[in-house]
Amino acid sequence: MTEEQTAVVDAQYTATQNIVRTRGVKRVYEMGKLSLEALKGIDMEVQRGEYISIMGPSGSGKSTLFNMIGALDKPTEGKVYIDEVDVAQLDAYELAWLRCRKIGYIFQTFNLIPVMTALENVTLPMIFAGLATDEAIDKGVDLLSLVGLGERVQHKPLELSGGQQQRVAVARALANDPAIVLADEPTGNLDRKTGREIIELLRELNQEKQVTIISATHDLKMLDVSDRILWVQDGRITKNQRREELDLDLGQIGAEEE
């Protein structure tokens, strides 16, 4: 192999390693005469299989960044690449396809469809993706067993506890074997212990299934399972820490909390 070829292969290799990449992302909200710059130029990469936490106070631009990464909003300026595809270039069908197949979403408020059973909630994205009903049901039962709800597939969301509902949501997020799971404050509506269990579940899935997990949070419990933490403040990434570096600071953060 010539040097040139090696370079090309290397470039492709690094390209496919980045499941999410943003370049100079800015997002301006026009509110009448005021314009608010929620993101002021974000450059970041997320690698396949990583567990990333985006930390930041409310109003920091964290949610805006999160929506960009999740293809839920388009940047005013700059580019967002998901699996090396520029999100801005996609039409409505392709965006729906991306959301259906490539990304799994987990919400703070669980967001299960109340009229459907746990199993139906999990199979809905598979039906959108065109899977036959039987296959979808088999896979849905498997996924619910994986999150520890094998006995409760026929329960409606309101018959389940908060932690169980969030487990259903985790199973639903995994329905179409997404490359990325986006979790928006997944423990925000849960008590300490249940929150811990959900975090551990996410970590296990991340390690066993090699799913990339990106989580917006201000829950400090999330930190020690993350591979990397992005600190967002005032529309910018102020710190990009690996977990190893974090251990040094953790005592300090804990102290701040008290």
């Binding site: 999740g70 409505a92 729906a96 396809w97 259906c100 197949r101 919400f107 967001n111 994205p125 993706a129």
Partner: peptide, 16 residues
């Protein structure tokens, strides 16, 4: 609104 938003996140098209 939340149910509709969720459906769209799961990949529902406008026409669904």
């Amino acid at each position: 609104y939340r149910e509709i938003g969720t459906m769209k996140c799961l990949g529902a098209l406008d026409k669904f």
